[in-house]
Nucleic acid binder design. Structure first.
Lengths: 243, 243, 243, 243
DNA sequence: GTGGTCTAGACCACT
DNA sequence: GTGGTCTAGACCACG
């Protein structure tokens, strides 16, 4: 009597559902923008209860592969911003400090600038110009230029057309934002200084001058560090957990 | 009779639960490794149904703040590897190409090397030595050195003690891995070459020579690009969606 | 977007276990008398908890495919007697009456006798002789001959080598037993009368005289009915639920 | 000091539960169709864990005294069909052959017919008429009349109002069905022939002619045997173990 | 919220 | 050590 018994592996129904749909999305048999059948329909197709379907869909939504638009359930790409905020939260929890973030940003932002100078389109230049105009208004009004800087840098990053780069700098950008917001009030000059940098960067990009753009970005990052020193901020301090 | 009725809390009960627990975790009153009470216990403490508790816990699990070990529910930090694999999947779906990934890696890996040279501990050096020994065995056996390279670089990244950097390079590392695996079979010299780089890097780190380590990392990244050329791989090709 | 989704079929682990083992038994890869591994061993082989194994084994035990002998778990055939007692209980619950049982017995016992006369072996004849001897002792002692009659008739039924017949008459025999036991005390002659019938039957079987054996069985059944009349028993009364 | 110690209660808790409930059912304090409290409720009433309750309930379910309808647990009688299928499986495992089954059926079906002729009600006659009409349609369509024959004979058996008889013939009927299904395709005349027998039987029952009904049933059984001969089926072959 | 299922671990009795 | 029993708690699917 030789019993050759295999180990059982039992996947719960909701995981079978989510795995099946994920496979179809990744494999391309469900394309971005496709509308899924109703939950009831899916329930009857899979032969399980609607709750089970919902449990599976929940997972895919959180992965960003599905998105709800009104009542419709659309196949979608995970949004860079969703991933960024998740990562940002994780980093804050791990008590990442300003210096760590700054170090990474110092590597990525010049790369962004350099690549953007090579890849940027006219449309993207126009977007940057509009952003610059808004920044001028903000600075003229004496308001905090932090949000404006973030917007500008995000646009530059977009202009690289490098998804991996955008994804990598996403959370770093958010955290730099937080750090900058902490010191900006103590630096009355930060607004005009920022504005000048943005103008130089836009010029460099217009001229497709990658080396110049990169140098400006590098200087911009140095400004941050100098700002911290001037403001008396210890870069070893962790960025506080938000929320 | 004047009824002063409070505005209804529109936050669903499960969100109250998850927010409360998240606050305790973030505030440190629940520490990493702590075991939560049973769901039943939580349900009675919060005065809600167990299903509600479960819904709240689910949210925290997906945030990575809770982790199940067997039946136990422990407080935990989000794992870098989880975030990395999610991000990796997203990038593959967006059909990121080898060049994009390589560009980012070329910025981050030298930074890793440089910082690691300054921050690495004796223990971490020992880990790298063991990794190198394994790589030697793998290369001697003529097996693929891809996994060994990944392991080595991950250890270097850990030695920076920079969470932001580790998180940013996580998905990039996974994708480089995939790209390297695609070309390695066509490059019989890649094993010995890799081994030499690892040895040089370990030496540089031992000597705390940041500039040298950075230079080696830069050269390592150049090797990748040259490998692609030799293997005839078009770096504009998207990395295929896995799984 | 054509979604061709298969219905999920999720078998619980304990059913996978029982189905797997049942298949092996029915297919013959586990033979009657084989000893199964311990529950703990099975649990580790299947990769599930012992409780899950027990749940699966329970099913097979109740089907009669497994039997416990001390600590050992043996592969076995379902026993006719188990099925009979289950059926007997069901019939009592449904308040089956003496007449119903008698009617069925009147059809089956003569058939038993007839077939036994054709199929009986020497060994079986010997068993019947020993049974007859015990009956003589019982009757001589003035004890109740009910059990003796049951034993004799069961032996005759066995001698038909017809499993379907044995199974069909099983519960009927048990209930006749109960009915007979109710009236026997009121019939002092029943012992000797029974003994005479057994002797005649044994003779008929020895001579392989199917017609005679059948006639004797028929008469035997008539004796039961007459006994009821003599004892003043209303055959429409239900046989009481036992236990 | 005299210690009078009672024998320990060796009955396990789950058995106390099942015995208690069985007693209530058999005694009638729980009637057929009554709904039991939830398992949780029973657990708290008996003061044991839910698993223990479940163990007890399982026993009663397998005895057929309880039945689940959706989530409800109702008191019920054991179903003849459950017992029949268990017995059928046992017989197949024991490799019962066609002849054995046929022999028993030859004794029981005529008895059914005879008793039914005496006991049948107007309602039951109407059911038989409807069954006959369906059979006519099936035969006219050239489909297999096997299921129709089973239905008709089961209705006749029901009309005897003899539970013992119905229970005894249950598994035999199932196995005859299997045997008939095996040969029916080879007998193009079997449909019309069957239809004629059903019509005659219905007439005999309408006229309450027990002797005629019995004779028709006897002939019907002979038809089966002849069918086997015509189809070239060896009646000594075992009916194969199903599933 | 209910039942079905699974895991985990414990204690006892046998042996 | 093995099986029998019991408790506890958790996950899952359904409604």
């Amino acid at each position: 009597m030789a019993l050759d018994i295999e180990k059982l592996q039992l996947a719960p129904a909701y995981r079978v559902v989510s795995d099946d749909l994920r496979r179809r999305i990744v494999a391309g048999s469900l394309e971005q923008g496709d509308i899924l059948p109703t939950e009831t329909e899916l329930a009857s197709r899979f032969g399980v209860h609607r709750s089970t379907i919902r449990e599976g869909l929940r997972q895919l939504e959180q992965e960003g592969l599905l998105r709800r638009d009104g009542k419709k359930l659309l196949v979608s790409m995970p949004r860079q911003s969703d991933l960024a905020s998740t990562a940002e939260r994780a980093l804050r929890l791990r008590q990442v400090n300003f210096r760590d973030v700054w170090e990474v940003a110092s590597a990525l932002e010049p790369l962004c600038a350099s690549l953007a100078a090579r890849q940027i389109t006219a449309d993207e230049l126009a977007l940057l110009e509009r952003s610059l105009a808004r920044t001028e208004a903000v600075v003229a009004a004496g308001e905090s230029p932090v949000a404006a800087d973030i917007e500008f840098l995000d646009l530059v990053a977009s202009a690289t057309h490098n998804q991996a780069l955008r994804l990598a700098r996403g959370p770093v950008s958010l955290l730099m934002h937080a750090g900058y917001a902490a010191i900006a009030p103590a630096l009355p000059q930060s607004g005009p200084r920022l504005l000048a940098v943005h103008r130089q960067m836009l010029d460099a990009l217009r001229q497709r001058d990658a080396a110049l753009a990169e140098a400006i970005a590098r200087r911009h990052m140095q400004d941050y560090r100098r700002g911290c020193e001037v403001a008396g901020l210890d870069m070893s301090l962790p960025i506080p957990p938000c929320t």
